[in-house]
Amino acid sequence: MPDIDGADTAGAGFAMAGVSVAFGGLVALSDVSLEVPPNRVLGVIGPNGAGKTTLFNVACGFVRPDAGELWWRGERHDRLRPHRLAGLGIARTLQDLGLFEHLTVLENVMVGAGRHARTTFWSSLLALPGHTREERALADRAGAVLDRLGIADLADRTPAGLPYPVRKRVALARALVAEPRLLLLDEPASGLSGEEMAEIGELIRGLTDRMSVMLVEHHMDLVMSVCDDIVVLDFGRVIARGRPEEVREDPAVLAAYLGEDVPAEPGRSTC
């Protein structure tokens, strides 16, 4: 397989090679390559409008790139459709969480577990024993994830009215219950207190025995402590990449991003 800009497209992980996206005249992404090897955490950082959200949208099939290749587990996926992602073992959380407000917390998570469901429309229509068993299995699976995230007692509530950090956990549970091989996290720490942020960082590190993670984040502390590798975007271009300690020292990064006095400032949301 070709190696474009050092992205190992043949690898067992996720890779983008030479991806470019333009909205009208505006270049949102320009020749971006990156890879997320198995069981690693890649952080994507960059100032406001750098193209981070667009990058995620390309990875999910919401935005089709004008040029470039998407690779997942050694296969090319240039025509990704968002609803096929779950089946491919890719899950994503949304920055605005996107909870199903009129479903219970448990149901929210059960929807995320749809990948594990096998029964047909007809077995649902007739409420056949197989379907009922499967529903129970999905509920147990969802309950277990809620338990792991410490919100099992809220299973029967609707998300409306729950505190924001709890809502974030529900969204995370919905992504995790699919047992993805790649988890895309859009600003997992925004709106969290320092303590909660440390917890989420630990949680993300704990996921790497089962999956790779790509995250967009503004809290430098979290990015630096959680990520194995970091890609820095500015005006749609990759201006630096490397291990956290390398990126931290990179003059281009300091100029473009860190120089903005952003690093430790919490709650700056740009996506």
Partner: peptide, 29 residues
């Protein structure tokens, strides 16, 4: 039959689509 659907996975899928299209799609719907 409708109650079976509404209670089961099909109904949950419908309600998820109603509540949030993007999230429903990402969940594989």
């Amino acid at each position: 039959l409708l109650a079976n659907l509404a209670r089961g996975r099909v109904g949950r899928t419908w309600r998820a689509v109603r509540d949030n299209e993007v999230a429903a799609e990402l969940a594989g719907i």
